[in-house]
Every structure is written in structure tokens, then in C-alpha cells.
Amino acid sequence: MKNILILGGTRFFGKRLVERLLEDGHEVTIATRGNTPDPFGDRVERLVLDRENKESLAQAVADGRVWEVVYDNICYSPQAAQDACDVFQGKVKRYILTSSLSVYDPSSHRNQEKDVNPYIYPITMGGKDDFSYAEGKRLAEAVFFQKADFPVCAVRFPIVLGEDDYTERLEFHIRRIQSGTPIGMPNLSAKLALIDSEEAASFLGWLRTQRVEGPINACSQGDVKLSDIIGWIEKETGRKAIIQRESAKENASPFGVPESWTMDTSKAERLGYSFKPIRSWVPALIKQLSQQENV
């Protein structure tokens, strides 16, 4: 039984991760602002904190416990990373940071971990409002790998999808195709890496048992063209999509990348993890969500 802390664990793949850890018999503590209810009842301990406030973070974990693992799903800035390095010094045996495909620029090749090296990336300090999401994640990684005195692994996830995706990115496309509303996509031929929320949680849970440090890519096996996604939605809705290369901001697709945005997962595969094929679950999810939209 391990003593595990999850910073942000009340929704989406964080929620699924908590369930997996509880099923495996671990003692789980979730730390959030306390604004989102969770279904865990008395199976978890709860800490209320402001992740962007160092004093709040320090007070929340000031009871002297040493955590076997800390999962950090809500770090978006170099300052938040530095705060964690200071607060958890001597208090954690392993730290797993949720990072993002966004640390890479869209590219014609599959991005490898070495393409953005956080061990040498120049650090500029600031809060999450001082940087774009992508730069905030790059800088957070850099701080952890250059400043932390504990082992850190940063999981670079692509867009995570699932029926529990509170951002409803797939539903955006389904609803617009159903209603005949235009969708802005500059490049239908662009390929996109994806992962579903169940596997994102599974990978995080598996990573707890590994000794790997540094950044690690995690996404479904293979990739899909945006035209494939649109085609699957058209099939399920029986409607033709109206795609515009240039569009008003409110019509812009959350998948609307100018060129392919994919990752190489050789590092994870060498460690023994086998990702699900992307085509084994995306069409099925689109079918499920399309049926729900018709209810």
C-alpha cells in the first residue's frame, strides 16, 4: 500500500486515476481548490489548496508525511513548479508531472522527447498568466528537471478525449455538423496524436511502478487525419460538414492545427507499455457521443 497525493483529481483522467489507485489498495489524498465535488466518499483524504499560492501549498502538506508518489495534474507555470520543488523537498520519493504535446510545435515529423530538452531549456520565472499554455508547460518542466532534488517524470499527453471530457471538444464538431454550422479547420490533411481518458489514467498508474525519469511521450498507437475524424462524424450524423480554412474565432475547431502534431512513443514502448491503436476507440467514441447528442 502506497501513500499517494494527487494534485487535481476530481475530473476527467485525474478522476479515473484516483479510481485505479483505490482499486489497487493505495491510500490516496486529493488536493484541489475544493470547488468540484467528487464521488470518492470516505475512500480518500482531501486537502484544499490554491496550487498557485506557495504558502497555501506548504500549509496543506505541512503534516510531516513523506509521499511515495505525487501526481501533479495542475501545474501550469515555472513559479508553480519552483514552489513544488521547495515545498516537497524531502517529502516525496517520486514526482509525476502531467505535461503536454503542446511543448512541441506542430511538425511534419513525430516529435521525440529530445526535441524539447527540459534539462537545458532556459528558465524564465513567472506565473501562469505570464505565458502561453505551451510555454508555461515547457518552463514548468525545465524548473522541475533543473531544480528538484527528487526524481521527476513529465508525461507529455496529446489531446485527451473521452465521454467524460468536460471541454466537449468532440461534441463541438458533432453539434456543428448536425446543425450545418461551419467549422474552421486550416488543414484537413494534418495528422493528430490523441489518447483517451481511460488510457491516460492507465499510463499514469503504470508509470508509478517505473524508475524512468525525464520527459516521456504518451499517446495512442498511430494517428488520424482530421479528415478521418470529420468523416466518422459525417457517417454517424448523416450530415455533411461545412469546413472553412479561414473562419470566425467562434467557429474555429479545437483540433484546427496548421500541420501535423504527433509524437513518437518509443521510449514508453521500450519500457514495456503497449498503447491502444487510435482507430480502435476514436470511431466508437464518436458513435457513442453522436447517439447521445440525438437523445
Rank of each mutant, 00 (worst) to 15 (best):
S280V: 05
R169I: 10
E234F: 10
V48D: 03
G9N: 05
N217R: 06
G25M: 08
M1L: 13
R16P: 04
E23S: 13
A84C: 14
R138E: 12
D86T: 14
P122W: 15
S266W: 12
M1Y: 07
I6F: 06
Q221V: 01
V282Q: 02
R211Q: 10
E68H: 14
L271I: 03
Y166S: 13
R270N: 11
M185Q: 13
W67P: 01
R16W: 07
E199S: 04
V28D: 00
Y76G: 00
K287M: 09
E250Y: 12
S108G: 06
E23M: 07
A252Q: 15
F203M: 04
V155T: 12
F145Y: 13
Q210A: 03
C75L: 11
P254M: 14
P37R: 06
W206I: 00
V152Y: 03
K276V: 10
P151W: 14
K128W: 08
E168T: 08
R33A: 04
Q146G: 07
Q244I: 04
F13M: 15
V257E: 11
H109N: 14
F157R: 12
Q178C: 07
D264I: 05
K137H: 10
S253N: 11
I243Y: 13
D105P: 04
D86E: 15
L139Y: 09
R46P: 03
M185N: 13
D24K: 08
I4N: 00
E168R: 11
H26T: 11
R33F: 04
D130V: 07
A134R: 10
D86R: 01
K287I: 07
F131D: 03
L101I: 15
V87C: 05
I286V: 14
Q210D: 00
